[in-house]
Design a protein around this nucleic acid. Structure first.
Length: 383
DNA sequence: GTAGGGTTAG
């Protein structure tokens, strides 16, 4: 545990608060639990570890509520080693602590491990509830290397009677679709009687993910026919489908809907720019980019791709320069691919060679949203 | 009065 003056003062403040107010033992537990939970939400590791230290010193180490909150806290701060340590040191577990552990591993992108922890849980006397099942199914989204994880979890969902919970079902639809089992996802979606907006969104995104763009559009029409209001999730997926199909007319209709509904979201703007770029309307894509307050690598890569595909290499490279020098973003592999494609289409061989030349990363550059790893990323300045 | 769960971008 690292020490800092700020953390030490937190610890002293806790002791002083406890003494001054003469807090009852039960009240201290509540205070510690709530404080830890707040630290987890804002990912304040420094305050959280001091509360942890105070918990140990005050003899609350074996408190189930506090230990569970600690599991959640360390998971949200991406300290997975501590998550494991806290959980294994607990003398008693319950459904909530097991679920928190599974959620923690899932949030740390350890879906496969979360699945095996669920299997371990089944070997205990504590049975999963629908929170647990939603969490483990959600952890397995995209984990197609875990053989038959979706059907295996589906069996548990049905066996325990949670197949009426939309939370569980939407996760399962997403899990099937993300593992490439689109037919199973559709089957489950069709079997669900009370479909809400999230389940529709999940199925639409599942179709998009598996490149069934027309089916995504059809489902969107069905959703609208049922007077269900689309959300920012819906329009992001639909714009992505329009982009893949290069259907500008339909895309513009969705754009009107976005304005009418007042969506202000980076995903919506990103898919909108991509839709106009792939549809060949670079000027409209530029207008959307100009209006949006988000300027990240994904948005700018779409602009670069759009100009690249119609052979406007100068504009494409101009956006790459803007990304590097003005926005100080880190280009990732998709961005480099777009820039090289622009160089290729425009015949800028020497510039392409310059872009491909690796140079050490500049410390001041902002990360591109966790896509590129800093130690493997290179940048070059195209002037 | 304290802990855990679903859908979106290049």
């Amino acid at each position: 545990m690292r020490k800092s003056s700020k953390s030490a003062s937190t610890y002293q403040a806790l002791e002083s608060l406890s003494r001054k107010n003469g807090l009852m033992e039960k009240s201290i537990e509540y205070v510690l639990c709530n404080s830890l939970s707040s630290c987890a939400k804002i990912m304040n590791w420094h305050f959280g570890v001091q509360i942890h230290a105070y918990t140990i010193r005050s003899g609350y180490e074996d408190n189930l509520f506090l230990s569970t909150t600690l599991v959640d806290f360390y998971a949200k701060c991406f300290c997975i080693v501590d998550v494991r340590k806290i959980f294994r040191a607990m003398k008693v577990h319950d459904q909530v602590s097991w679920t928190s552990l599974i959620v923690g591993f899932s949030a740390n992108k350890l879906g496969k491990e979360a699945f095996f922890l669920f299997k371990e849980m089944l070997g205990t006397r504590i049975m999963p509830n629908y929170f647990t099942l939603t969490s483990v199914v959600n952890a397995c989204v995209g984990e197609n290397k875990v053989v038959n994880c979706c059907p295996s979890l589906h069996v548990h969902v049905v066996k325990r009677g949670f197949d009426t919970s939309n939370f569980v079902i939407s996760s399962l639809v997403d899990c099937y679709a993300s593992c490439g089992r689109i037919d199973d996802a559709v089957l489950l979606f069709n079997e669900t009687s009370e479909k809400d907006t999230v389940i529709y969104n999940t199925m639409i995104s599942g179709y998009c993910r598996n490149l069934y763009s027309e089916d995504a559009l059809k489902l969107f029409v069905e959703m609208r026919g049922k007077n269900m209001s689309p959300t920012d999730h819906t329009v992001s997926s639909i714009l992505s489908a329009c982009s893949r199909l290069a259907v500008l007319v339909e895309g513009k209709q969705v754009h009107s809907l976005v304005i009418k509904m007042g969506f202000e979201n980076v995903f919506v703007d990103s898919t909108m720019i991509d839709m106009y770029s792939k549809g060949g309307d670079n000027d409209e894509a530029r207008r959307v980019l100009h209006q949006t307050s988000w300027k990240n690598t994904v948005l700018l890569t779409s602009m670069i791709m759009g100009y690249a595909q119609c052979g406007r290499g100068v504009e494409a490279l101009g956006f790459f320069d803007y990304l590097l020098t003005e926005q100080k973003l880190i280009p990732d592999h998709v961005c480099f691919s777009a820039v090289l494609s622009a160089c290729s289409h425009a015949g800028f061989i020497w510039k392409g060679k310059e872009v491909a030349k690796p140079r050490p990363i500049v410390a001041a550059l902002k990360p591109s949203g966790g896509i590129a790893k800093a130690d493997t990323c290179f940048h070059c300045a195209v002037r």
